[in-house]
Design a protein around this nucleic acid. Structure first.
Length: 765
DNA sequence: AGGTTCGAGTTTTTT
DNA sequence: ACTCGAACCT
């Protein structure tokens, strides 16, 4: 469900044109769409047709004004949003034009630019992109090297201090100069060390992608000019959530031709905690005195009730520019605020209500969504939905890549591509166990530090490690050989054997990943893992192979469509695959056509819309979150978060809270959110679900049907289709833990155990 | 060397 | 309640 999919602003007869790109737009929308040169700010309230305006403007620039499509750059907040925007623009222009557009996130744009200009920055091409857990490992390493206690400086906290500094473009040196107190002086030391570790590992963290791009643009005027001329029309969506580094990049790119179009809504700024600066959008006009400003205030999405509630809520923010939110839509039903006993009751109440909507009102599952402030609330909701046999999906695209077995597999791939990546190497050097002990590893690190060599050189020459015994040396050498074999196969030759891999004879990406999983012993380790009798982990590795294959196909198709006769080599495909894996976001996993109830955090819900929305856990301490209670600014951000959630709903909205909530296995009394008191009574129906016993009934019902109505969707013997493995027949299916596994005999690929949540199975009748 | 147990910290939100 | 790491045992 994307913005504006279901809404159609009425035609205004006075300003009718014959241009199909324009004639169904309101005057302000049209004003924004037809603006060509010079800066423009579009302040777009929720559901005001912002996405429509952006896609139409791109189409207008390309097909009416005659701007070459490759000069247009559109930056979105997630890959998912980029994909959708690209898709919707493609419907308005030719296929060739659509392909020439650049639509992506800041991070993937930066990764692309950095790869292109790597040698100008002295950046070796196989650089790793570290995610939060890799970053934490690097921080721990830094703390260890500096002999600082992790008790006083928890890696997470240190990381966020460093991240905040990076987002403000403050490097370690500058940080040290600013540091006054003991805490910041220590952070400065860790920051310096952390930077050294990343450099040594040839790794960038998320912030570095932006940071390095800023320095590239600053220090290489010729590169800047090249990029400015390449991207003459720059559009940034969700401008209220840009941080300082992103602001610098946007303004540097648009600095020459001045065609910067920013769209967003200050009331939906919800990423302040990660360095987003709401001032970027508020001060747009003073940064660009000649800017055209368009305000889109009419809402086409929600009922009057929902919008009135949202408006009343957001008016409580003191630091806010006034906006008139209005709609011609029906008044609709009142918003229901529901009091439940505990989180289980709450989940069951929502499930019962959703089932009623589905069965009685014929509302498809895909048009319902559940939002929550923190991820941990998804658990109960999931259990209730699964027990009720209702199909659901969770917007956690990164969850798959956070699994230990997948992280290990990815670490192997990174080590192949980037020999300097010590964080990844340490992860896998003895996983699965191969006779390399902690002691041996410590000795390696000590030697590498003392002799200032890259740690992986020791794998080629373990005899240097005189302190470890022969057995360990042999194990190291063997492991080194294995890595070398893969590097060779993938086309990352060692210096003297720079292998130009021949795309005809070289392995496919899928084949490479499969070989690596087998030869590394990861596959066998999962197969023999007694703690995982259902081979869930093995199935996950299988999913990684499919995703590699899927990526390979898409990547080759993309290049083919680009017109070049260039067939990508295995090494190119591997680099691109790793980059993709690093930059997936949670909402990227949401498939609106899947016909399933969607669960996500309020942050992930930004930019989406659903006919029916339930927001759960609307309690003080959760929304607003307790960590934001003290600070007025943060409280206002929590209110904006609530505003974002409420304004996603088109027709029906439920706000639920539980009297007791179990945290860490302890049941605690809760207080309803203070935001309830800010909502107008005439928009609300209060329901006390504790009065009736539907919840209790649901409790007992769900217990009985626990063995899974989900399994009924794919009964044994039914014919299914898998995107990679093709047609197959279900042998058996069981719900286990948080997943449902199915054994499926495929016609061409043999029998595989798949997890329904990851395998995109399709029932074939 | 490798597996097991016990304790601590964990949960805010994410590219 | 659950996961991760460190000490401890085989």
């Amino acid at each position: 469900m994307t913005e504006q999919e279901l809404s159609n602003p009425p035609t205004d007869p006075d300003t009718h044109t014959d241009d199909p790109l324009l004639d169904d737009l309101t005057p302000p929308q049209r004003e924004a769409v037809t603006h060509v040169d010079g800066p423009m700010l579009v302040i777009a309230g929720p559901g005001s047709g912002k996405t429509r305006v952006i896609t139409r403007r791109v189409a207008h620039l390309v097909t009416r004004v005659g701007i070459p499509p490759w000069q247009v750059l559109a930056i979105t907040f997630t890959n998912k949003a980029a994909g959708e925007m690209h898709q919707r623009t493609a419907e308005l222009v030719t296929e060739r034009q659509a392909r020439a557009l650049t639509v992506c996130t800041f991070h993937s744009l930066c990764a692309r630019i950095l790869r292109q200009y790597a040698e100008r920055l002295g950046l070796p091409p196989g650089y790793s992109i570290y995610d939060t857990s890799d970053q934490k490992r690097a921080i721990k390493q830094a703390l260890n090297d500096l002999e600082i206690n992790t008790k006083n400086f928890p890696p997470g906290g240190v990381l966020s201090s460093i991240s905040n500094a990076k987002n403000e473009l403050i490097d370690a040196e500058a940080y040290a100069e600013l540091a006054g107190d003991f805490y910041s002086r220590t952070i400065a030391k860790i920051y310096t060390k952390y930077t050294q570790i990343l450099d040594r590992n040839n790794a960038l963290d998320f912030d570095d992608l932006l940071l390095k791009t800023v320095s590239l643009l600053r220090e290489h005027p010729d590169v800047l000019k090249e990029l400015q001329d390449r991207y003459q029309y720059v559009m940034i969506d969700e401008y209220q959530d840009t941080n300082h580094a992103q602001f610098m990049i946007a303004n540097a790119l648009a600095g020459r031709h001045k065609n910067l179009c920013a769209t967003g809504d200050p009331d939906q700024s919800i990423y302040g905690w990660r360095g987003a600066n709401i001032k970027n959008i508020l001060d747009f006009e003073s940064h660009n005195p000649d800017a055209k400003v368009v305000r889109l205030e009419q809402n086409y999405r929600s009922t009057k009730c929902i919008l009135a509630l949202a408006d009343a809520l957001i008016k409580n923010n003191a630091k806010r520019k006034h906006k008139d939110l209005w709609t011609d839509n029906d008044r609709g039903e009142p918003v229901q605020t529901v009091t439940c006993r505990d989180e289980r009751h709450e989940a069951n109440w929502v499930v019962e209500e959703f089932r009623r909507l589905h069965d009685d009102d014929n509302l498809p599952w895909g048009q319902m969504a559940v939002f929550y402030r923190i991820n941990s609330l998804s658990r109960v909701m999931e259990d209730a939905l699964r027990d009720a046999g209702i199909p659901y999906q969770i917007a956690r695209g990164t969850a798959f890549y956070e699994r230990a077995e997948i992280k290990n597999a990815v670490a192997y791939l990174r080590c192949v591509v980037n020999p300097a990546d010590e964080v990844s190497l340490m992860r896998i050097i003895n996983t699965p166990t191969r006779g390399i002990s902690d002691k041996t590893v410590k000795a390696m690190q000590a030697y590498a530090l003392a002799n200032n060599v890259q740690i992986d050189t020791l794998l080629g020459d373990p005899l240097k490690l005189t302190v470890v015994n022969t057995r360990a040396q042999t194990a190291l050498a063997k492991f080194g050989k294995l890595l070398d074999t893969w590097r060779h196969a993938a086309g990352f030759g060692t210096e003297e054997t720079t292998v130009v891999d021949d795309p005809i004879t070289s392995l496919s990406l899928r084949g490479f990943v499969e070989d690596m999983l087998r030869q590394s012993g990861l596959e066998d380790a999962c197969r023999n893992d007694k703690s995982d009798p259902d081979h869930e982990r093995l199935a996950n590795l299988g999913e990684l192979v499919s995703s590699a294959q899927q990526f390979e196909q898409d990547f080759e198709l993309e290049l083919e469509l680009d017109g070049g006769d260039h067939t990508p080599s295995l090494s190119e495909k591997l680099l691109a695959f790793l980059e993709r894996i690093s930059l997936v976001s949670d909402v990227d996993a949401v498939d609106p056509d899947q016909g399933a109830v969607t669960l996500m955090t309020l942050h992930a819900a930004k930019g989406l819309e659903y006919p029916t929305v339930a927001m759960i856990g609307v309690e003080d301490g959760l929304l607003p979150h307790e960590r934001a209670n003290a600070d007025q600014q943060e409280l206002e951000e929590e209110r904006r978060l609530c505003f974002v959630g409420v304004t996603r709903a088109m027709k029906k909205l439920y706000l639920t809270h539980a009297r007791y909530r179990t945290v860490f296995g302890q049941s605690n009394v809760t207080i309803p959110s203070r935001f309830f008191r800010e909502m107008p009574e005439d928009c609300i129906t209060e329901i006390d679900a504790c009065d009736d016993d539907t919840g209790e009934l649901a409790d007992s019902l769900s217990q009985r049907s626990l063995a899974g109505r989900e399994a009924m969707l794919y009964p044994s013997g039914s014919l299914v289709r898998h995107p990679q493995f093709g047609l197959g027949r279900v042998i058996d299916i069981h719900p286990t833990g948080s997943h449902t596994r199915a054994r499926i005999a495929f016609n061409t690929s043999g029998t595989k155990t798949l997890i329904l949540q990851y395998a995109r199975l399709e029932r074939v009748e």
